[in-house]
Amino acid sequence: MSSTGNTRVAIVTGGSGGIGRAAAQRLAADGMSVLVHYAGHPARAEEVVAAITAEGGTASAARADVADETQVAALFDTAEQRYGGVDVVVHTAGIMLLSPLAELDLDDLDRMHRTNIRGTFVVDQQAARRLRPGGALVNFSTSVVKIGQVGYTAYAATKGAVDAITLILARELRGRDVTVNAVAPGPTATPLFLDGKDEETVDHLAKLAPLERLGRPEDIAETVAFLAGPARWVNGQVLYANGGIA
């Protein structure tokens, strides 16, 4: 389970599902040792670990509430103890609760604020303190911030905050040789996105992009791998990965 030599080490939050799983598997395929974070689905996280190790990669799983600073500090401790340090943090963990603003249950707003905004602060704080030189932090935003789809007010607002955190933190890490960027996916075929949508809605969303399909988790993982690896001159950016919707 330990990592040796010059192997880079990645923590992927939300690594048990959807985009997080694809990102974890892609970074492992690129030769990184991966700590797969999960919040409430240990079996799914272990499936990701098993898939990575079956391909000859190195991975293990660990649980944390991303909004709890003590648990997230322990998550980073685990990565350092198992693999020797942290070079890449991919923060995909988030929740999406949809409603027009006028009908929004403010408890849903508070839940998203805790996970999506506070969680990003907590994870990014540990990343800022611990990433080694040559490291990369990849946050997750959403194309809805720019597209402005109805019903996404509260969710998009939390991700607008992620954009701001990303742009400013990149500048706060001046001199550290650590990049900070965010990926802003468009409609992507994940359980989180597809939940509660009828076929007509999904078909409509699939047609929005000039490529006339939904994104795939692997498409987003490709973008993550770029930012986590070769893209050293991309910094302080929100990269829209949406097939050209806007």
Rank of each mutant, 00 (worst) to 15 (best):
G236A: 13
L194H: 15
R213I: 05
T70F: 00
L208N: 08
P210Q: 10
A54S: 08
A189C: 12
S16H: 09
F193D: 04
T92V: 15
D77M: 03
A10L: 00
P210T: 07
F193L: 02
A189E: 12
A182R: 06
A61T: 04
M32S: 04
I147K: 11
A128H: 04
A228T: 00
E218D: 15
S99M: 07
P230T: 00
P100N: 12
L227Y: 07
T153L: 05
A73E: 14
L169M: 05
V48H: 07
L211N: 06
H41R: 08
Q125C: 06
T166I: 00
G31A: 15
P185L: 03
P191G: 06
L173V: 14
L109S: 06
L104C: 14
I11R: 12
A157R: 13
Y83E: 12
A22K: 15
A51K: 00
N242K: 11
I165V: 07
V66N: 03
A241F: 08
I19Q: 05
A74H: 06
V202I: 15
T188G: 09
D30C: 05
L35C: 08
A50P: 03
G244H: 13
A241Q: 11
R171Y: 01
A93T: 08
D203A: 15
L192A: 14
L104M: 14
V122S: 12
L109C: 02
I165T: 02
A29L: 11
Y155E: 02
A45G: 01
F76E: 05
W233Y: 03
A39Q: 00
L109Y: 14
D77H: 01
D163E: 11
A206F: 01
E218Y: 11
D203W: 03
I220Q: 01
S141G: 13
R63I: 08
R82F: 01
A54Q: 11
I147P: 08
A154K: 05
I245Q: 09
V34R: 03
V162N: 15
H91F: 09
S3T: 11
L27Y: 08
F76I: 00
P42A: 08
A161V: 03
N181Y: 10
N181L: 10
R132V: 07
V9K: 10
A24H: 00
E218I: 10
E46G: 05
V72W: 13
A225W: 12
T120H: 02
G119S: 01
A50L: 06
P217Q: 13
N139V: 08
L98K: 11
D198T: 02
Q71Y: 00
L104N: 09
R171P: 00
A102D: 09
L104Y: 14
M112N: 07
D68H: 03
G215V: 09
